[in-house]
C-alpha cells in the first residue's frame, strides 16, 4: 500500500545569530492513507518544525517530504492545520471562521452548500447553535472545536494538529479526544498529531513516533494495535498500561535521562 505521508531522511537546521541550530536530523516517518500518527518528543526537539515541513511552509535542508506520491515543494490546499492557539478571527462569527479556508481554496461547493457543510461540521463537534456567536463568547474547548472544523472544511486529505488540546483542562481534553474519533469516522483524513500527552497519543493514533532530543531523529515507533474508535476505558487496560510504560521509557531516553537513574531516585 502506498503511504500518504512519507518523510525520508529529513534534516533541517535554523540559521540563528549563534550559528546554525540543527533541529531535525534524519527523520523517517511513513503514514498510510487514513492512518493517524502521533509524534511525541522532548520539548523544543523540533515537532512544530516537522509540521511546518509537512505543510510545505518550509523546505528541509536535506531529505524529502512526500504527500500523495508527490514531493512537497510549497503549501498545498489539501492540508488542514490546527494549533494549540485556536487563532480564530475575532471579527467573524464562528460560521464565517469555519468558512475561511474556502475563500482561499478553489471549491466546487456553492455558497449554500459550503454553509451547510460548515453547519454539519459544527454539529459534528457539538457546536450546534453557536454558528452566529463570536469567538470571544466561546470557551477554550469550544474554540478549539471550531478551529478543528475550519481545518476540515475544505476536505483536506492531511490533517496536521500541533498540540491542539495542550492548553485545555483534562476533562475537556478527554471530551475532545472522543470528538476526534467521531469526526474521523465521518470525515476520513490522514492525521499527524503532535502531543505532549502519552495517553492522548495512544488513544487517538495508530502509530506513535518518539523523537529523540534536538536534533531530532526517529527514535522509536510504537504500533497501536487497536484501530478506530476507542473508549476511555481502553486507556485503563493492561495493554494500554504496557504501551504507556514503553513510551515513558522512550521519552526518558530521548530526554537523555537513563531509566535506571530515574528508578534510583
Amino acid at each position: 500500500m502506498q503511504n500518504l505521508i512519507e518523510i525520508k531522511g529529513v534534516k533541517h537546521a535554523y540559521q540563528t545569530d549563534a550559528g546554525p541550530l540543527p533541529v531535525l536530523d534524519g527523520l523517517e516517518i511513513a503514514v498510510p492513507e487514513g492512518g493517524f500518527v502521533a509524534v511525541v518528543g522532548p520539548s523544543g526537539c523540533g515537532k512544530s518544525t516537522l509540521t511546518r515541513l509537512i505543510a510545505g511552509l518550509m523546505k528541509p535542508d536535506h531529505g524529502e517530504v512526500w504527500l500523495h506520491g508527490e514531493k512537497v515543494k510549497g503549501p498545498r490546499s489539501t492540508v488542514g492545520m490546527a494549533f494549540q492557539n485556536p487563532v480564530l478571527l475575532e471579527w467573524r462569527t464562528i460560521l464565517k471562521n469555519v468558512l475561511l479556508p474556502l475563500e482561499i481554496v478553489p471549491s466546487k461547493l456553492t455558497r449554500k452548500q459550503a454553509e451547510e457543510r460548515a453547519r454539519f461540521l459544527l454539529s459534528l463537534v457539538g457546536l450546534e447553535g453557536f454558528e452566529d456567536k463570536r469567538p470571544s463568547e466561546l470557551s477554550g474547548g469550544m474554540r478549539q472545536r471550531a478551529s478543528l472544523c475550519r481545518a476540515l472544511i475544505h476536505q483536506p486529505d492531511v490533517l496536521i494538529l500541533d498540540e491542539p488540546f495542550g492548553a485545555l483542562d483534562a476533562f475537556t481534553r478527554e471530551d475532545l479526544w472522543q470528538t476526534m474519533h467521531r469526526v474521523k469516522e465521518r470525515e476520513p483524513f490522514t492525521g499527524v498529531l503532535i502531543t505532549h500527552d502519552l495517553r492522548e497519543s495512544i488513544f487517538l493514533a495508530d502509530q506513535v513516533v518518539v523523537l529523540s532530543g534536538r536534533p531530532a531523529r526517529t527514535q522509536y515507533v510504537l504500533e497501536v494495535p487497536s484501530r478506530g474508535p476507542r473508549t476511555l476505558d481502553d486507556l485503563y487496560t493492561p495493554v494500554a498500561a504496557e504501551q504507556l510504560n514503553i513510551l515513558r521509557h522512550q521519552i526518558q531516553i530521548a530526554q537523555g535521562r537513563s531509566p535506571a537513574e530515574e528508578g534510583a531516585e
Binding site: G74, N85, I104
Partner: peptide
C-alpha cells in the same frame, strides 16, 4: 499561526 493558517492553503 495566523499567517500559517492561510499560508498553508497557498494564500
Amino acid at each position: 499561526e495566523y499567517r500559517d493558517i492561510l499560508r498553508s492553503l497557498g494564500a
